[in-house]
Simulated assay, not measured.
Amino acid sequence: MKNIKQFYSLIVLFSLLTLSCRQITKSVDETFHPNDSLAKKYNKENHFGTNGEYTGTTKTSTTTSVQRRQEKTIVINGNTVNTPEMELKAKEMFQDIELLKQKNDPSAAKEIQKRVNKFLKEMKMPQGGLKSIDTDKPLVKVKKGILGAAALEKAEDQLKKLPQYRNKGILVYQSIHFYEDGSINLMLQHPINPKYIDAYEYRKGAWSAPKPVLATDIERRIFPLSEIHFADARKVIQIYNAKTDQIEGAKPKSNAYITIWDNRMRWAPRTINGTRERYDIQFNNNGTLKSFRQE
């Protein structure tokens, strides 16, 4: 973490740059240094020098108004902001940031960014001021999506090489789900007892240990793994999303799955819903388009 004074200076600098207006810049300066700037402005408007001497042609009786200072406002993005309120909120923000810094936690940087954005939102200022500030561990947003074709093939190959299925055919039960976070969930018929079904999860490049599950209609809901290719899941998503681009209001998908019934497999999703139309979409076992029609 940077020195707190340097951090505060960066926050103020960001506010000045994003406002992009000299008048706003001056107002923000009044926010963080209200006593000096307001006093100077008051003295100038009422013809007083830096030492309190009167500089106008005619000296009149003038009284400093605390109420006038408290009612000082500025306009930011068309919104009127009370400067004493801004000063108070800025003080509270800095106190919160100091507490977060004392935690000495890698997640503190993210919490500090949220706190600053909250202040900027309350003050009707543009948000995102901490994106350009270096931190010990930069925040990285991970883009979600199913695994690439090569990674899907690797997952399939590792599944076939599980020790318990060595030299045995593997039968998938009920479904296979390819999720947008790169994980894969499926169930397999037990390698020794065909009346049992085990669930497996693929995550971070490895398959989990088997977990027993309750199962029904096993004989009708199994399909050979040898006739399924995981990489075809990407074909399904690409074709599906290409069709959504042609339909008003339709939303793309980032996951796909297989369902098994009567010893047959089917790719899904199988419907596309738009704001005005609904379509049925079917795929061949290899992930290519089989049919596409409006319902």
Rank of each mutant, 00 (worst) to 15 (best):
R221H: 08
L16W: 00
L38I: 04
L139C: 00
Q238R: 15
Y240Q: 01
K137L: 12
G128R: 09
R293T: 15
D181S: 12
F283Y: 15
M93D: 02
I133L: 12
E92M: 07
M86F: 14
L88N: 15
L38F: 05
T60Q: 06
P34R: 09
F283A: 08
H33C: 07
I192R: 07
K235W: 02
T244L: 05
P126T: 10
F223H: 12
L38V: 03
D136W: 06
Y257Q: 14
K161Q: 10
Q282C: 06
G205K: 05
F32E: 06
N77W: 04
L38G: 03
G78S: 03
V75N: 04
V12R: 01
L88K: 15
M187W: 08
Y200F: 11
K103F: 02
N104M: 12
N241I: 05
Q294C: 08
S107C: 05
E248A: 13
F230T: 09
L188W: 04
R276Q: 13
Q189V: 09
I184G: 08
T216E: 10
F14L: 02
K195S: 04
V81L: 14
V75R: 05
K59G: 02
D157N: 12
N77E: 09
D198M: 11
S254M: 14
P191G: 09
L88M: 13
I184F: 08
N77I: 03
I281Y: 03
N167T: 09
L16P: 03
E227H: 12
T135P: 04
T63V: 11
S20W: 05
M187S: 13
Q174G: 02
Q294L: 15
E111T: 02
D96M: 04
R69T: 10
R220I: 00
I272R: 04
Y8P: 00
